[in-house]
């Protein structure tokens, strides 16, 4: 909970600055890309996140990362600030919060769809379109396959959940039998 509060504070700060520079989307993309790259280098990412290493070493590593991945100067300053204030370990949460703020700003809803089999692009697009109509927002879904749901799909966007799985229907059926209705 504390981590989320801290992440929201820094994400908001960066987002406001990015909006003033009219670079909110770009910064979002850069942050997501950087996080992805760092995650692909777990040793580097671990050193940055670990409280054992002093900020000097982390700053040296950051300089190298910035050089290799060509991170914009504003993002670099933000990362330096996180290291100096010993908040770099919340980078993942900060990026997620930033993305949420950006999505809110751009009217984008991101979510997850759970299916029993890998959905085709056409099915995914159709589902995103239908949800866009319902939520009046651009919807982006990530597909996750879970054979345990037996059949149907389950969509989760923010606090909303639409459950059309066979598993949940069977659970409802079970409840009806138990209650004797």
């Amino acid at each position: 909970m504390r981590a989320l509060a801290i992440a929201l504070k820094y994400a908001k700060g960066l987002f406001i600055a990015a909006k003033e520079l009219n670079q909110a989307e770009e910064y979002g993309k850069e942050l997501t890309k950087l996080l992805k790259e760092l995650k692909s280098q777990p040793e580097v990412f671990q050193v940055l996140q670990s409280p054992v290493y002093p900020p000097d070493i982390k700053l040296d590593i950051l300089q190298e990362v910035v050089r290799v991945y060509r991170v914009p100067a504003e993002i670099e300053r933000f990362l330096v600030l996180l290291i100096e204030r010993r908040r770099i370990q919340y980078l993942e949460e900060i990026v997620a919060m930033y993305q949420a703020l950006l999505d809110e700003e751009l009217g984008i809803a991101r979510g997850e769809v759970v299916a029993a089999y890998p959905l085709s692009e056409a099915e995914k697009s159709e589902l995103e379109e239908s949800l866009k109509e319902l939520l009046k927002k651009q919807v982006y879904l990530e597909v996750r396959v879970d054979p345990e749901i037996i059949g149907g799909i389950k969509v989760k966007i923010g606090d909303y959940i639409w459950d059309g799985t066979v598993k949940s229907q069977l659970e409802k059926f079970k409840e009806i039998i138990i209650k004797g209705v």
Partner: peptide, 29 residues
């Protein structure tokens, strides 16, 4: 009953049935 139903459905649900279920869900939305 539910366990038995699950087993039966897992065995007998065809890819067409799966697609129909997804279609039905999209229609509901």
């Amino acid at each position: 009953s539910v366990k038995l139903a699950e087993e039966l459905l897992k065995k007998n649900l065809t890819p067409e049935d799966q697609k129909r279920l997804v279609k039905n869900f999209i229609e509901q939305i």
